[in-house]
C-alpha cells in the first residue's frame, strides 16, 4: 500500500484532504442551517405552547435581570393585558444544567412546566421529562415561598431515587415564579 513519504507529498496530501473536507463541511452546514434553525424554533414554540393557556398573543423573547440572574421570557397577551408568562429557568441538576420552560400566570400561579434540556441520569432523573405523576404536581401550584420536595419539608413528591433532580426542578420553578411576581408587580406600578 501507500506511497513513499516525502515532506512534499505529505504536506500536499494533508492540505488537499483538509481542503476537501472543509469544503464538504461548508456545503453541509449551508444546506442544514435552515432546517436546524427551524427544528430549534419548533421545539421552543412547542414547549411554550405546552406551558401557557391557549389563546393570547405571544411576544418575542424578552430578557431581564432578577436576583443577579438573567431570565429569558415570553409574554402571552390577551385583551390588552398580560395573561401569562413563559419563563426559561435554569438550575443545576444532578448531571449538569437543567433548563425548564415554566408557564406562570401574573398572580404567581404555575400553569404548567416542561423540560427544555437536561443531562440527568437516564431512567432516573431523566424521568422529570416523562413522569406524569411528578409533572402534574406543578399544575395550579401557587407557592408563597420557595417550593421544596417532601424530604426537605415541602409538598412536592420527588421522583424515586432522584431527589437531587427533583430539588433542582423545584428550585427552577420557584425562581421562575419569583421572577414573574417581580415583573408583574413592576407592570402594575
Amino acid at each position: 500500500m501507500a506511497a513513499k513519504s516525502t515532506l512534499k507529498n505529505m504536506a500536499l496530501c494533508l492540505t488537499l484532504v483538509c481542503l476537501v473536507c472543509s469544503a464538504i463541511l461548508a456545503v453541509i452546514y449551508a444546506v442544514t442551517y435552515d432546517p436546524i434553525q427551524a427544528a430549534e424554533k419548533k421545539a421552543l414554540t412547542e414547549s411554550i405552547g405546552q406551558v401557557l393557556p391557549d389563546g393570547g398573543e405571544l411576544s418575542d423573547v424578552v430578557s431581564a435581570e432578577f436576583d443577579g440572574k438573567k431570565f429569558d421570557y415570553y409574554v402571552s397577551t390577551a385583551d390588552g393585558a398580560p395573561a401569562a408568562y413563559a419563563v426559561k429557568s435554569t438550575t443545576v441538576g444532578f448531571g449538569g444544567p437543567l433548563t425548564l420552560m415554566v408557564g406562570v400566570l401574573p398572580d404567581g400561579t404555575v400553569y404548567n412546566t416542561s423540560v427544555l434540556s437536561h443531562s440527568e441520569t437516564p431512567g432516573l432523573g431523566a424521568k422529570c421529562n416523562t413522569d406524569t405523576k411528578f409533572m402534574d404536581q406543578w399544575k395550579g401550584l401557587r407557592p408563597d415561598k420557595v417550593i421544596k420536595v417532601t424530604k426537605d419539608g415541602g409538598d412536592i413528591d420527588a421522583i424515586t431515587a432522584s431527589t437531587i433532580t427533583s430539588r433542582a426542578y423545584s428550585l427552577a420553578v420557584s425562581n421562575a415564579v419569583a421572577f414573574v411576581r417581580s415583573i408583574a408587580n413592576k407592570e402594575e406600578e
Partner: peptide, 11 residues
C-alpha cells in the same frame, strides 16, 4: 493507495 504512509493516521 495515494496517501503517504507517515501521514495516513491524520488523514
Amino acid at each position: 493507495p495515494v496517501v503517504p504512509d507517515k501521514v495516513h493516521i491524520p488523514v
